[in-house]
Each structure stands twice: as C-alpha cells, then as structure tokens.
Simulated assay, not measured.
Amino acid sequence: MEALVTGGAGFIGSHLANALLAKGGVTILDDLSSGSKANVPKKAEFIKASVLDEAALAKAAMGGAATVFHLGGMVGVPMSVREPQRCADVNVKGTVNVLEACRKADCRVVFASSASVYGDNPKTPYRETDLPAPVSPYAVSKLAGEGLLAFYAKEYGLKCVSLRLFNVYGPGQKISSGYAAVVPAFINAARASDDLRVNGDGSQTRDFIYVDDVVQAFLLSAEKGSGAYNIGSGKPTSVKHLAGKIIELTQTKSRITRAPKRAGDVRDSLADVSKARRELGFEPAYSLADGLSRVIGNG
C-alpha cells in the first residue's frame, strides 16, 4: 500500500509512517513547523512543504498514494488560543487543500480529528452521536475538518474517515506537542526530581491512549469504515493519578503541586470506543501502566 502522511515528521505521524513502511511506500509531507526531520524514517520519501502548499500536495497525492493520512496542522489548544487566525488557516484551509488533492487523485482520506470537538460536555463517556460543543479554536477547526470530509464523501464519493483522538502519549513525544503533552512534561520533571505541577486541582480526567494503539486505528481505517470514530482507551484517569503513577514508576522524590487552570481546557474527557470496536475492529492493547513503562524505559 502506497501512503501519504501529512504531518509525518510529528509525534503520531512518524510512528504511523514507520508502521506503514512495513506495508509499502510512504511519502511524508511536513513543513517542520512542529515536527522534526529526525523523526522521518530513512526509507520514507520526504517533502518539506505545508498543507497550505496546494501544488506540493497535489504532486504528493498524484504520486500513487492509495490513502492519505492527514495529520498535518496546528496541534493543541493553547497555541490555538494564542493564534486563532493561523489555526483556522492551517487546520481548515489546509484540510480543504488535502481533500481537493485527494479528490483529484482518488485517494482514501483518514483525518486526525480530536476529542476536543465534544467540548466541556459533563456527560461522559462521549459517543459519536453526542452533539459537539467545541470551546477552543483548535477544537472548532477539527470539527470543521470533519464536516469537510463528510461533505466530500457525500458530494464527490470520496472515501473518508475521521478519528477523534483522545489523549495520545508515547515515546518521542515533545512537551510542546499538544495531545497528552502532560505525560512527557511529568516524566521529565520526575527524572529531574522536580515538582509535578497539575493544572487546577488535578481531579480533571482524561482518556490516555498509547501511540501504538492509535497507529493501529489509522491502519484499520485505511481498509474500512466511514464517518467519525472515537479513538481512546475507554478508561478515565485523573491528572493527579497520572502524576502519582509516574512518580511511582520513576521512583523519584518529586511532589505534586498545583498550577492555574489552562484556558480552553475541558473538565473531563472519556471515549466510548464501541463504534470503533464494532466497525473497525479497534481494540486498545496497552494499559496506562504498560504504556508509561514503555515511555519511561525508552528514555
């Protein structure tokens, strides 16, 4: 299978690209604004370009890709709050560009959406049928991306899947990466015996999912499915509990301290993955303890 990965020099994209290389050729398109050339697998073809570069996208998609995995764009809530216009430009216009290239090249599209589209909905676990209520420019841009995929699927017959990723973590993740960046931040602090600072009181919950499980969801989506799917572990973890588990696994003397709540953050987030399990065959393989142990051992 020939594949194009936008954002393939980033955290999730590079893990996906490595897995795809076992199945065929891989082209990565990334402007390195948040990714790193060091993450690009040696056997992958690399194009340094933004998703706003229509000519580069068209050339990459026309290169024989059967599936385009669209992960390129601005990552995370905080940056989108600081730069909402750039978020809209890159995440919305960039997604239109990807879809146009795929329409012309007749590629399947798998889009990295986000659990943030659900907003601060107090009713968990989240189901794909729940009404979205995004509370940040990042979340709005991801919901817009899903809507664009749905339009292209209905209007042009393009085969499209949107994966609503919950809090992804794993080896090679940078603190600035968004997703579950609290994990590398806590691990780095614990290794230095520094305090682990939680935003708010730490009782807010997240659905942390190991990156290899997320890669598996992308691979499954290249073969089957349509519409939007939740991709998470299906298990809630408080940020305070996460900090305690990392302190335990690193055997550090760090303490847990408090910091102000972040703008745009939601209170609780938990995935109902029954639709992905039923239609994609998705099944998370890693517990939080297993995943954290792998990250800590990898560093």
Rank of each mutant, 00 (worst) to 15 (best):
residue 142 K to P: 03
residue 156 Y to N: 14
residue 20 L to M: 08
residue 161 V to N: 03
residue 46 F to N: 04
residue 246 I to P: 09
residue 160 C to T: 15
residue 110 V to P: 14
residue 226 S to H: 07
residue 139 A to E: 06
residue 205 T to S: 09
residue 225 G to L: 10
residue 269 S to W: 05
residue 30 D to S: 03
residue 208 F to S: 02
residue 216 Q to G: 03
residue 288 L to Q: 04
residue 61 A to H: 05
residue 159 K to D: 14
residue 37 K to D: 00
residue 200 G to W: 15
residue 84 P to F: 07
residue 131 L to I: 14
residue 4 L to F: 10
residue 241 H to L: 15
residue 84 P to H: 04
residue 211 V to A: 08
residue 276 A to D: 02
residue 235 K to F: 15
residue 174 K to R: 11
residue 73 G to L: 09
residue 44 A to I: 09
residue 100 E to R: 12
residue 14 S to C: 11
residue 193 S to M: 10
residue 22 A to G: 10
residue 85 Q to V: 13
residue 149 L to K: 02
residue 259 A to D: 15
residue 182 V to T: 10
residue 194 D to V: 00
residue 157 G to S: 09
residue 232 G to A: 08
residue 292 L to R: 06
residue 156 Y to R: 10
residue 9 A to D: 01
residue 215 V to Y: 00
residue 201 D to H: 08
residue 256 I to P: 06
residue 104 K to P: 08
residue 129 T to E: 15
residue 123 K to P: 03
residue 154 K to N: 07
residue 83 E to L: 11
residue 114 S to V: 05
residue 49 A to Q: 01
residue 186 F to V: 03
residue 20 L to C: 03
residue 13 G to I: 00
residue 130 D to L: 11
residue 286 Y to D: 02
residue 163 L to K: 09
residue 8 G to R: 03
residue 206 R to P: 11
residue 255 R to N: 11
residue 212 D to K: 13
residue 173 Q to T: 07
residue 48 K to S: 12
residue 17 A to G: 10
residue 50 S to E: 06
residue 32 L to Q: 02
residue 111 F to E: 11
residue 80 S to L: 00
residue 235 K to D: 13
residue 46 F to A: 04
residue 272 D to V: 05
residue 15 H to D: 08
residue 165 L to P: 04
residue 113 S to P: 00
residue 39 N to Q: 09
residue 264 G to A: 05
residue 152 Y to K: 07
residue 258 R to C: 04
residue 291 G to N: 09
residue 250 T to Q: 06
residue 269 S to Y: 11
residue 41 P to C: 10
residue 37 K to C: 04
residue 213 D to F: 02
residue 147 G to C: 14
residue 90 V to W: 01
residue 121 N to D: 14
residue 104 K to D: 14
residue 132 P to H: 06
residue 4 L to D: 13
residue 209 I to L: 12
residue 296 I to H: 05
residue 29 L to G: 05
residue 186 F to P: 03
residue 18 N to P: 00
residue 24 G to M: 07
residue 33 S to D: 10
residue 240 K to E: 15
residue 196 L to P: 06
residue 275 K to P: 03
residue 200 G to C: 08
residue 200 G to S: 10
residue 5 V to F: 13
residue 36 S to T: 08
residue 213 D to G: 03
residue 209 I to A: 12
residue 231 I to R: 04
residue 291 G to P: 12
residue 207 D to I: 10
residue 81 V to F: 14
residue 142 K to F: 08
residue 71 L to A: 13
residue 286 Y to L: 14
residue 299 G to H: 07
residue 93 K to C: 06
residue 143 L to F: 09
residue 257 T to L: 15
residue 49 A to W: 01
residue 9 A to G: 04
residue 217 A to P: 05
residue 2 E to Y: 12
residue 131 L to W: 07
residue 45 E to H: 10
residue 270 L to F: 07
residue 283 E to Y: 06
residue 279 E to V: 10
